[in-house]
Design a protein around this nucleic acid. Structure first.
Lengths: 336, 336
DNA sequence: GTGAAAGCGCTAACAT
DNA sequence: ATGTTAGCGCTTTCAC
């Protein structure tokens, strides 16, 4: 910067003024041009480190994630956070903790030392979490998780709404005997989606039948294994806890010689692109708003979004209709 | 820091020495203890910004990616890079460009302004690339891509080796008529895997038959659509360009009433966990070393690994054997 | 063993 | 309209 000042025959202050083009400081048109030229000639770049030091805080936003690798989900959160941060002139500092506490502590320390504007603390699946002590030293928002015993800002998917949407896809096509294969694993998703399922049935005037709900491990094998039980239920449609279960279910159904959606309508949950969009037939499902989770997280952090009412913001899970759900057909329905 | 110095009744210089526990500077045991205590009491954290300003360069490593979101792959690269960087006391600065040139330029500028130690420039699938001009201003390593017309450091998967491994899985089980469904899209992977396939056949003393190689679009639909052609070939095994094709192929095969691996052995490529590990039967495939790509990238960048010979380091693609390949059976093989 | 002081590159009063 | 100067929090000679 000093070099530029000398080169252009001005002071460093002047250079600073034109670089940041400060409004209130009037710089002579000639001077400005001269400075700009010198900058180009010298290939000068401002030193963000020094800039931040002066201002006392950086343009960093920290993102600590418990599992960058395991799923595509974390990637989406990072992506959303990164885009939104960028939009406001911030950069993402990413740390992966793999759920390891000491690592997490180090990661947060490091971010604090870099005087981050704030920290996004994210988990790869929606769940309650403890807030690490060090987090309190700065602004933070929980992403895809929440603290049951604090009023920390958080943003999570609206599981109930998602469950309702998923069920509605089926209801709208005329299905009335709709099974729900829930997960065996306790989670906000398990309870929320079930509640959404019940709400959707109720709105449609369909009585809730507990025999139509059963549990399975939420992966392909779980879905495959659920087929036998399912076929005892005399249903025309199934709502699966997630896409992976739906994938296994497809296999089982096909093996029984059943066709989708004619013999059985299927909807999943998660909208895992690699899977859902390319199954045969493509799977109707409900999307988990991971990208939006990340983006909303930084908006909350930066205060551009205000938390309305509750400190935990719930994001909608939009339905994604593909071809695994059709109307009940006379020929197809095993019930007729 | 000044507060700590005052609190402990020493100078800031002493505090600095204690904090970084410098070897050569002898600090009285009592003084050290006193300083450490004061630090704890005051909850002091060193300011990384200031530290970096003095040292002139930061402990940042930049990672610019063209697609964080699209696939789980990018996530793995980030993860590997992050772990390795962390190991050496560096932090990852992540930028997603979505392939947009201006964004990419900004991202690199920002990293340069933050005086990063170097930049990892990564793409989500293995391909040739142009080196953005600004990159040259710092140390950089190409990850999952390479520059045909420069000797820039790069680290990429060894496609030929991968193709050989995939084919070998089949060969080892006694298969001799092995089809290869290649991609329609030009890429290092297309050429490399084909070459690997040929090499593996040759090593096994199997004559290469061009009729056993054909092209399809590298996704589920492509795999499904390839079934008809495939069944004309009188083969007992197929090597698919990627797991997604294998997934579609499964559907097609099952629809024909064929069973895997008894009627047809299948191997994929990529080892996309969500898919491969949970297909029925679980898919034998070859893993793309994304995590290692990221990790090796930072090692190359930091100079802990030296490029041996060529500036482009090729990483092995390890085979992952599951259950989609069995020995040729008398009952199963359609040829007998 | 420990302190004083210079300086990293920049910004923001305050002068001129 | 532009220059001077005092720090931002830290490291690092060099004295004592």
């Amino acid at each position: 910067m000093r070099d530029v000042a000398e080169g252009a025959g001005v002071s460093v202050a002047t250079v600073s003024l034109v670089v940041n083009n400060k409004k209130d400081a009037r710089i002579g048109a000639g001077t400005r041009k001269r400075v700009l030229e010198t900058i180009r000639e010298l290939g000068y770049r401002p030193n963000a480190l020094a800039k931040n030091l002066v201002s006392g805080s950086s343009r960093f936003i920290g993102l600590v994630a418990d599992a960058i690798a395991t799923t595509p989900f974390a990637g989406q959160i990072i992506h959303g956070a990164q885009d939104e941060a960028w939009k406001h002139g911030f950069v993402l500092l990413v740390a992966n903790t793999e759920g390891d506490e000491p690592v997490e502590k180090d990661a947060i320390s490091m971010m604090l030392e870099h005087k981050v504007r704030g920290i996004l603390y994210s988990t790869w699946f929606h769940r309650p979490t403890q807030i690490p002590a060090a987090l309190q030293e700065t602004d933070f928002v929980l992403v895809n998780c929440f603290s049951p015993d604090s009023d920390a800002l958080a943003v999570v998917p609206d599981e109930v709404h998602g469950g309702r949407e998923a069920t509605d896809i089926l209801v709208r096509k005329g299905h009335r005997r709709i099974a729900f294969i829930n997960a065996t694993i306790p989670a906000p998703a398990k309870d929320g989606r079930l509640q959404g399922y019940r709400e959707a049935l109720e709105s449609a005037g369909i009585a809730f039948d507990p025999h139509l709900v059963f549990d399975a491990y939420p992966d392909q094998e779980g879905g495959y294994g659920a087929v036998e039980e399912l076929l005892k239920r005399d249903v025309t449609a199934v709502f699966c806890y997630n896409d992976r279960m739906a994938m296994g279910l497809y296999d089982g159904l096909k093996q029984e010689g059943l066709s989708i959606p004619d013999d059985m309508a299927v909807v999943g949950f998660d909208n895992q692109e690699v899977i859902a969009a390319h199954m045969r037939p493509p799977l109707s499902t409900v999307a988990l708003p991971h990208y939006e989770l990340g983006a909303a997280g930084v908006r909350l952090l930066l205060g551009v979004d205000e938390p309305a009412g509750s400190p935990v913001l719930k994001l909608e899970c939009p339905p994604v209709e593909r071809d695994s759900v059709g109307p009940i057909t006379l020929t197809g329905s095993r019930l007729l």
